[in-house]
């Protein structure tokens, strides 16, 4: 993360003085965009840079499902498991995705193509159930749509 410090310095200017700990979240996002995940050395380096206790970074990392401690496959499938989606069949979607990909939530397929995650509310409850493929939303998900989506992605059909 050290090469990102000049960027962090510019972020710092946007925060009032004495609020360096508020930079934990944006810094972690930036680190993850850079490396693909947050490594042990990033945590140690960030604590030192911001003078925040280690536990504060661990709390942020564990609270937000979008922050990861390990690398992921090429395509990231994130299925919402929160209340609106659950009421509209998210559990079936998750189960089906597991079966199709042969992994459990949190795991990556052996060929490194897919990582499946379950996440909290994606803010699109009106179109539940929702899942994300990398940064794109796929709404009103059904098992048929999921089959087609996975088939398309497996055939190398881009990121959406």
């Amino acid at each position: 993360m050290r090469h990102l410090i000049p960027e962090f310095e510019r972020m710092k200017e946007r925060f009032p003085e004495g609020f360096d700990s508020s930079l934990v979240l944006p810094c972690l996002h930036r680190i993850q965009a850079d490396r693909g995940y947050v490594a042990e050395e990033d945590i140690v380096g960030l604590c030192e840079y911001l003078s925040v206790p280690r536990i504060q970074v661990e709390e942020v990392l564990s609270y937000y499902t979008m922050l990861r401690r390990e690398g992921i496959g090429k395509t990231h499938l994130q299925v919402c498991r929160n209340i609106a989606c659950s009421m509209r069949g998210a559990e079936g979607v998750i189960e089906h995705a597991c079966k199709r990909l042969g992994v459990k939530p949190g795991e990556t397929t052996a060929d490194g193509k897919f990582t499946l995650s379950t996440v909290e509310c994606l803010g699109s409850c009106g179109t539940a159930p929702v899942l994300m493929v990398n940064d794109a939303y796929h709404e009103n998900m059904t098992l048929e749509k999921l089959d087609a989506l996975i088939a398309d992605l497996s055939a190398g059909g881009g990121n959406s």
């Binding site: 206790p53 280690r54 536990i55 504060q56 661990e58 709390e59 564990s62 609270y63 909290e120």
Partner: peptide, 10 residues
């Protein structure tokens, strides 16, 4: 000591 934290959510 900042020895303890509340991890995860809900």
């Amino acid at each position: 000591s900042n020895g303890l934290g509340m991890l995860d959510r809900g």
